[in-house]
Design a protein around this nucleic acid. Structure first.
Length: 324
DNA sequence: ATGGTTTTTACTGCGTC
DNA sequence: GACGCGGTAAAAACCAT
């Protein structure tokens, strides 16, 4: 068994906020040279002096929400129209505004208001009408639910959404349940993002049982050609450590043990969870913090026997690697 | 489906508090 | 005696073929 330990770092995709600093060269009215004022309400740019309309039908890039104070504005404000994979239509479909104003900014008559209200209702219905869209909507809701139950960050949800979307595109759904595929997507996403959750943890919050989950998971990974590296045991360490109230020192120690174990090629088909659990246990031993094998096995959902076997191997490996 | 691994289950013995 | 720990054997689960 070849143990090519490829250290893959799936970094978190940081969304960088670019501070586009441009010298605001003030534009002038071509007629009279007056100051130009943009009127977002009417989607126009007009001259302050003579009232000439310089620009028409501008796209309103402003917010579509109301802000009641500065703090709220900052909180909600963003740049451009974000498309998000987390909404079933990527947030690109038409929404009918809530403002009850016409294109000129005038308030609507009550008849018109009622009409718009009805239009809104129907628009919403049509928007989600066709089956794929509905399907997606449900699945994304499910993904969201499970992700929060597992404390998975936003980017994992995004990834899961993307995976699910692809599965849907490739017609992988027929014969499989929406929940199943949604769960599998989330599992894959969590692993790809370097915040893996074990199958047990996932199936605990999912409506589908383990069997179906593993089956669909394997299936979509193969069909979609997803690259999912074998989970790195180190990724489990922080969770176990905090779950057991151990020190940072222990956490570091556990990482070291795993590192030397890696170079000794101890992992080969061994479950990463077991390895991580054993490392935490061994580290606690070395730093004189009291944890029982039983406690570790509880938080890691792994049997004590496995911990015993693994941690012996870990200590051996670290001895050969760094003879103290 | 099958065979080889790994993990789990269940049980036993030892030492300590 | 309860508890933590270590070991073993058999069963179950998993994976690749």
């Amino acid at each position: 068994m070849t143990d090519t330990t490829t250290r893959t770092y799936t970094g978190e995709t940081e969304t960088q906020t670019e501070s586009t600093q441009q010298a605001d060269e003030e534009e002038r009215c071509p007629e009279c040279g007056g100051r130009l004022v943009s009127d977002a309400e009417h989607a126009e740019t007009v001259c302050e002096e003579c009232g000439l309309v310089v620009e028409e039908d501008e796209i309103d890039r402003g917010p579509e929400w109301r802000a009641f104070d500065a703090a709220e504005k900052d909180e909600k404000s963003r740049v451009g129209a974000p498309t998000t994979k987390m909404m079933h239509d990527q947030g690109l479909s038409t929404n009918i505004g809530w403002q009850d104003k016409d294109a000129y900014g005038k308030a609507l008559s009550s008849r018109q208001r009622q009409k718009m209200q009805r239009l809104r209702t129907w628009n919403e219905r049509f928007r989600t009408r066709d089956s794929k869209e509905r399907n997606l909507k449900q699945a994304l809701g499910e993904i969201d639910r499970m992700a929060s139950a597992l404390g998975l960050p936003e980017n994992v949800r995004e990834t899961a959404s993307v995976i699910y979307r692809r599965a849907l595109e490739e017609d992988l759904l027929p014969g499989r349940s929406i929940e199943g595929v949604a769960t599998a997507s989330l599992y894959a996403a969590a692993r790809q993002a370097g915040t893996p959750r074990s199958l047990d943890e996932i199936s605990a919050v999912s409506r589908v049982d383990r069997m179906e989950l593993t089956r669909t998971y394997r299936y979509i990974v193969r069909q979609l050609g997803l690259e999912v590296k074998p989970a790195d045991p180190e990724h489990y360490v922080p969770r176990f450590v905090s779950g057991l109230d151990l020190s940072d020192e222990t956490e570091r120690m556990a990482r070291e043990l795993l590192d030397s174990a890696r170079s000794e090629g101890v992992h080969s088909g061994k479950s990463p969870v077991g390895l991580a659990a054993a490392a935490v246990y061994a580290a606690a031993l070395l730093t004189n913090e009291k944890v029982t094998q039983n406690e570790v096995s509880e938080v890691a959902n792994i049997s004590e026997v496995t911990i015993r076997n693994r941690y012996k191997e870990l200590l051996e490996a670290s001895d050969t690697a760094t003879p103290a």
